Simulated assay, not measured.
Amino acid sequence: MKIKNQNTIPSKYLLLILIVVCGILLGVERFADGGGPLRFIGNYTIVPMQKGISYVGMWLSDFTDNFKTMEELKKENESLQEKVDELTIDNTRLRQDQYELERLQELFKLDRNYADYEKIGAHVIAGNGTNWFSSFTIDKGSNDGIRKDMNVLAGSGLVGIVTEVGPDYAQVRSIIDDESNVSGMILSTSDLCMIRGDLKLMNDGRIKFEKLPNNDNTIEVGEQVVTSHISSRFLQGLFIGYISEIQVDSNNLTRSGYITPAVDFSKLQEVLVITSTKQDLIERKNAEKEGE
């Protein structure tokens, strides 16, 4: 005796299901504007997938292009930075050349102002470790004809005197040094005074003078002060500076005050060394007298 399979769908029901599916597909075809059921299914499945793949492809393409653009911009930026660095260096060199030219022009004027003296130029190569060049080293020495007690000029006038000489260098003590004493003269009246160095006063940009006779000669602020003819080591007539303050001393016999120096002792870079000392001039004059 055969037992019927309870899970088997009768043929009439299968036919009915197929008819219903066909009807649904025909209806769908009408909504899909005659594109067919496959097109309808594709519109809702394959097409969105294609759009997604297309968006991903476009994003990857844009990312690659942006990456290339960033690399190009980076290289361009590096190239521009190199040009900026080169221009900065060139500009710095031009400024240095300009400042050096201005300083050399000042030395040239100074050389012309003291044309009676032979001079040699030198660079300052070392200071004394302070803000003021109270003593310093130059790059010329005995091999260049530099000798002790030669007078040194810069800016508009007297800087100091050579105190020590080596083969290729020399030490200079400036007139602002605490150990410096210079015999000065008021240019307008020929009155003599003593000028003493004092580094503490240089913070105010001045040096001190004293022992100026309190006579009938009127001396005012702004008068020029030069080295005197009685100085034992400094040549006569070297410009020292301008009187900035003057007063009568308590003894009523002398006057004292302050001088604004003609040289900026905080910015010395080049100097002129007069190659004749005061002793050389004295010996020369004595020889001329003996030859008369």
Rank of each mutant, 00 (worst) to 15 (best):
T163W: 01
W132V: 06
D144H: 08
G145E: 03
D85L: 10
K109V: 09
M150R: 02
I53C: 01
S135Y: 04
E102A: 08
K140V: 01
R93G: 05
A170R: 05
T137D: 04
N131W: 05
Y169S: 05
A170Y: 03
I125R: 12
Q50K: 07
A126E: 14
D144P: 04
R95D: 11
V84R: 15
F133T: 05
K68Q: 13
V124Y: 12
L158Q: 04
S174Q: 02
I146N: 00
T137F: 04
L73K: 14
D62W: 11
L101A: 15
W132F: 15
N77G: 12
Q81N: 13
G155N: 03
N151H: 01
N151S: 04
V152T: 03
S134P: 03
N143H: 06
F63P: 02
F136D: 04
D139V: 01
S134I: 00
V159R: 05
E164C: 01
R112Q: 09
L104W: 13
E71G: 13
L104A: 12
F108C: 04
K109A: 09
Y99M: 11
E76F: 06
G127L: 04
N143M: 02
L153K: 01
L153Q: 02
E76K: 11
E78I: 12
L73H: 13
T130Q: 11
R147T: 05
Q96P: 00
Q50P: 00
S54Q: 07
D62Y: 14
I120E: 13
V84P: 12
E86Q: 15
G155S: 03
N91D: 05
E106Y: 06
T163L: 05
S134H: 07
K51V: 06
E106L: 11
D116N: 09
N143S: 10
S142K: 01
L101H: 13
D62F: 15
I146H: 00
M70P: 00
K75A: 14
G145I: 01
N143Y: 04
R95K: 13
D97F: 10
K68R: 12
Y55H: 06
D111A: 11
I120D: 08
Y114F: 09
I120Y: 02
A122S: 08
E72K: 15
A170K: 03
G121F: 10
A126V: 01
M49V: 06
T130S: 15
L80W: 07
I125L: 10
G166Y: 06
W59L: 10
H123R: 14
S61F: 13
Y117K: 10
D111S: 14
F63E: 14
L94M: 10
M58Y: 08
G166A: 07
S61R: 07
I125D: 13
G160I: 04
N128D: 15
H123M: 12
T163G: 08
G157R: 01
M49C: 05
A170V: 07
E164L: 01
